[in-house]
């Protein structure tokens, strides 16, 4: 299983803050996971945004980052702290 979390505007648009997905061989990168989620249509297209940021196991990464069973992934809009 992988855990996917959503924050801020993405959390609101999707109406959920996290979900668990069974892992499979096709989910070999965060990009593959994003593509699968966007394919659900409607609100999920928010994850196709060019400025989307992501993290794997609580470290910021890019979409080419490999994905493994058991990972915690997060998708979020550009951060605005400070």
């Amino acid at each position: 299983m992988i855990t996917v979390q959503f924050f801020a505007r993405y959390r609101e648009t999707l109406g959920t803050d996290q979900e668990q997905l069974p892992w499979d061989d096709g989910l070999d990168s965060l990009e593959a996971l994003r593509t699968r989620l966007v394919a659900r249509g409607e609100g999920w297209s928010v994850l196709a945004e060019r400025r989307l940021m992501c993290a794997r196991n609580q470290d910021m990464c890019d979409l080419q980052e490999p994905l493994r069973d058991g990972d915690e992934v997060a998708f979020f809009p550009p951060v605005t702290g400070g």
């Binding site: 924050f7 801020a8 505007r9 400025r51 993290a55 910021m60 997060a74 979020f76 809009p77 550009p78 951060v79 605005t80 702290g81 400070g82």
Partner: peptide, 26 residues
């Protein structure tokens, strides 16, 4: 530290304005 905090730490601001709540854009 403040330059990196603003772009690499996972915080998001949502403001209450006269026109309603809005997410601050980076």
């Amino acid at each position: 530290v403040i330059d990196y905090l603003k772009t690499r730490a996972p915080f998001w601001k949502k403001e209450d304005t006269g026109a309603g709540p809005r997410w601050v854009e980076a």
